[in-house]
Amino acid sequence: MENGGMIDPKSEEVAIAVRDVQQQFNINNQQVQALKQVDFSIAINSFTLVYGPSGSGKSTLLNVLAGLQPPTNGKVTVQGQDIYSLKPDELAHFRANRVGFMHQTNHWIKSLNVIENLSVPLYFLGYSRAKAKKLAMIALERVNMAQYAEKSPLVLSGGEQQRVAMARALANDPVFIIADEPTGNLDTENGDAVMNLLLTAQKEFRRTIILVTHNMEYISLADHLLKIQDGFVEDIPSTDRSKVMKRLLHDVNQRIEHLSEVKKNAKAI
């Protein structure tokens, strides 16, 4: 990625290509434009960091990428396949086969133990219980959680749960892993451990990582930055990374100053 994160969309190296994507929602009879005009490509085996303020359309973008939300307009292509031209059942198979998803809050099937929860995407791919368990165990060993295989995921700590969720995202051998603020509910130590796992997935297992985060300190891990604001996605060249950092620090300073103003005015009232 010598050209600063920008890649030729037609290249074989492209994992995901997003073209002219728009997303409208109809909420209480009001048109809401969540994604206005989105174009970008993500290279195979890259680590993409998506950042932007709350309500900027991050979640919508992730759902569109994960094959959960057909866009109002535009195309999402994964390894040359226009995923929203697939029939609903084929799209479900795409999710089971190609996407690993980590959420901020962990979701589990409460009646299943850790290893069975990990097996769920494999079940939907048609694996028998025994075969799925074998594959899920490999994924669980990768995150050093094998000893918890027969436990309920609900008794694990937040950090442990995130590691298991990571294993679940790896178990089905996906093309790309979407991590939606996976460190949001964790302390720094556990957060770093999750980041470490994501980096391992990228470097060792050759996965494509898409990370959404508010914690801008992770910016150094990424080799591709996407800034999302007001429904527009901006591809930030890696050469501009220091500029971004400066602007972020500047924004933080500004915000601190703004809040102290607010505090003063509040007292005056």
Binding site: G80, F94, N97, F124, L125, S128
Partner: peptide, 26 residues
């Protein structure tokens, strides 16, 4: 990696469906 556009694919085995249903009841 496998090709994406393969039209034929497996779906969840019936025995696993029974297992999931039974787990929830149990």
């Amino acid at each position: 990696m496998q090709k994406l556009s393969s039209k034929k694919y497996d779906s969840i085995p019936f025995s696993v469906m029974i297992f999931l249903a039974w787990k929830n009841i149990a």
